[in-house]
């Protein structure tokens, strides 16, 4: 075992990390929180010259319990549903003051798909130069796992329970990216914490644009999804490899790039990892039908976006930059 240096020297080392750590240690996120990871990755790419407006939600709560803050950037939390508007105001102020500081808006799926959607749509329509990042953990986790417009079909939540009459969420996950892209804004994308290089490059790309940009980051929640904390990244990789959460880039509403599926996995591999889908694993006709249904949704995505490109064993078909394969020495991850 390594000998522990003094905490003072660790703190010094922490200050010297060769990356911008916008969200620092000491925050109170659950073990294995996907959102905490995603937020840091976004800021890593964005750098320090930003202002963050953050919606009410887990990210806000676990990072800003007074008097402690985990943020290294200027950061404001106002309300659940007004993040896009607060960010619009900040951006207007930056324009008024002639500053180049970039504005980021952070919100969860509740604050984006549902309650904050109006403000978001307004922001996009007015084309404020704001990068809006939705950390999508597919339910209202902050209040204890209630279904949202983003909760996938069939998933258990406390308000889409499993009983003799209902079997998890009845409705489909809102196709937010299509709605967002209908604003014909410069850039919109999806990303996943399982592909950090891809996420960071998308953040950089988005910040290179003038006007509104949007990134939907799939962010597993061990508590709400019912999976082991160590599996957060693994599960997100499965979400992508099954086709359930396609990784896309859109330019003014047109899909311009997709991340090809590295190794196609059946949706059952994804379902099996999470308690929220446990009822789908039963040996019953209805469970089988739901499993088939989810598989069909995956297949639909794969077909719709062309996620399978060429034979799986052809290494050249993959965009290795975005697939996040490791390299010795880690330079590519810096």
């Amino acid at each position: 075992m390594e000998e522990l240096p003094l905490s003072a020297s660790l703190n010094l080392l922490r200050e010297q990390q060769p990356r911008f750590t916008g969200l620092e240690a000491g925050h109170r996120a659950c073990q294995g929180c996907g959102q905490a990871l995603a937020a840091r990755l976004v800021l890593e790419a964005a750098g320090p010259d930003v202002i963050v407006a953050n919606a009410t939600g887990c990210l806000e709560i676990f990072s800003s319990a007074w008097p402690e803050s985990a943020w290294r950037t200027p950061w404001i939390h106002s309300l659940f549903e007004n993040t896009a508007a607060v960010a619009s105001g900040i951006e207007a102020a930056m324009r008024a003051q002639g500053k180049s500081t970039r504005v980021l808006a952070f919100a969860g799926d509740g604050g984006t798909f549902d309650i904050g959607f109006q403000a978001l749509s307004g922001m996009l329509e007015r084309n404020h130069s704001v990068l809006y990042v939705c950390f999508d953990n597919e339910a209202y986790m902050n209040t204890g796992v209630q279904r949202s417009g983003s909760t996938p079909h069939g998933a258990w939540t406390t308000t889409s329970p499993v009983g003799s009459k209902t079997r998890g969420k009845r409705h489909y996950k809102k196709d937010l990216l299509s709605i967002i892209s209908a604003h014909r804004m410069p850039y919109a994308a999806t990303a996943s914490i399982a592909y950090p290089s891809d996420l960071r490059s998308k953040v950089r790309k988005a910040l290179g644009e003038e006007g509104s940009t949007f990134i939907l980051v799939h962010s597993p929640c061990p508590l709400g999804w019912g999976h082991e904390s160590r599996l957060s990244v693994e599960i997100d990789r499965l979400a992508v490899e099954t086709g359930l959460f396609p990784i896309l880039e859109m330019d003014r509403g047109n899909v311009i790039n997709v991340m090809p599926i590295r190794k196609k996995r059946p949706v059952i591999d994804y379902i099996r990892t999470q308690d929220r889908f446990r009822h789908l694993l039963e040996e019953s006709e209805i469970a089988q039908e739901e499993r088939d249904h989810l598989q069909a949704l995956c297949d639909f995505n794969i077909e719709r976006y062309g996620l399978m490109v060429g034979p799986e064993d052809d290494p050249s078909r993959l965009d290795t930059q975005s697939a996040d394969t490791v390299t010795r020495g880690g330079e590519r991850w810096a």
């Binding site: 990390q17 990871l37 990244v233």
Partner: peptide, 26 residues
């Protein structure tokens, strides 16, 4: 030295050092 642990820790509990031990992470 792929940086996976450093990159993927949600709690920033992995620090990278210039040390040339078996791994550069603490």
């Amino acid at each position: 030295r792929c940086d996976n642990c450093w990159t993927l820790c949600p709690d920033n509990a992995v620090l990278k050092s210039s040390g040339t031990n078996r791994s550069p992470y603490i």
